[in-house]
């Protein structure tokens, strides 16, 4: 589903964020991406949704070589990848419903279908009844779950999460992780970047370790 083929990224000024990273994620696989801050986790994830382009090497998603994707085709790729951010990236002047509905409205779903799917996604993350509230009235953990609902509402084939538990206490972190596990169990290819090594160990899933931009041989 996701394949990195000797991918390097150099920023102007010579700093190398990734160097010759290669790996493959099969469809339906769940993996953790770990490493220190600045090890290149975010850069790697940004390449999957074309926020960054490799300086060298190739990234494939579902057989599509992202180097060959034209700007006009980027939206179609992104619609197929749900993304959860550490800082939520929610619209604070819109209700919870509108936030979660955004990917569906962009994809052109009818109002009835949008309502049905948004309520289903919110109930899945345990936020039923919050549709009319504004994100600011929710706790950090709840805001994160709104972000997750938005990431999965369009039923993407791939789910990426960049430090999704970064600001949460251990209890909430576990809840969020088990949520990702549930999505993975229904076939969503899932990749989670985190530095919460204790949690990763408990989950007992594949782990990719980045160190100064390189993938450590042992997985």
């Amino acid at each position: 589903m996701i394949r990195f083929d000797s991918v390097s990224k150099r920023y102007p000024g010579g700093k190398e964020a990734l160097s010759r990273v290669s790996f493959e994620l099969k469809a339906g696989e769940m993996t953790f991406l770990t490493g220190h801050s600045g090890a290149g986790k975010s850069t790697l994830m940004k390449m999957i949704i074309l926020m960054e382009r490799p300086s060298q090497g190739q990234v494939f998603i579902n057989g599509t070589n992202l180097n060959r994707v034209k700007p006009a085709q980027i939206p179609a790729i992104r619609r197929n990848v749900g993304v959860v951010f550490q800082n939520h990236q929610l619209l604070f002047d819109r209700t919870v419903f509108d936030n979660v509905a955004l990917p569906l409205i962009i994809a052109g779903f009818k109002a009835r279908e949008v309502g049905r799917r948004v309520r289903a996604a919110l109930s899945k993350v345990g936020l039923s009844g919050t549709e009319k509230q504004y994100p600011i009235t929710l706790s950090g953990g709840e805001q994160q779950r709104v972000g997750i609902a938005r990431a999965v509402v369009n039923k993407p084939a791939v789910l990426l999460a960049d430090e999704p538990t970064g600001n949460l206490d251990p209890e909430l972190s576990r809840e969020i992780m088990s949520l990702f596990l549930e999505f993975n169990q229904v076939g969503v290819t899932t990749m989670i970047a985190t530095h919460d090594l204790a949690l990763v160990e408990k989950m007992n899933k594949r782990e990719l370790v980045l160190e100064h931009g390189s993938l450590k041989a042992a997985e």
């Binding site: 052109g108 009818k110 289903a120 899945k124 039923k155 084939a157 999505f183 076939g187 969503v188």
Partner: peptide, 27 residues
């Protein structure tokens, strides 16, 4: 809610007429 998809590309495909009418209503 999440049914496994054999191919992600089909995940967000909707009928053409449904799309045009919803595009209109989005306008």
């Amino acid at each position: 809610m999440n049914r496994a998809k054999s191919s992600g590309a089909t995940a967000s495909v909707t009928g053409f007429s449904a799309r045009t009418s919803s595009a209109l209503s989005h306008h």
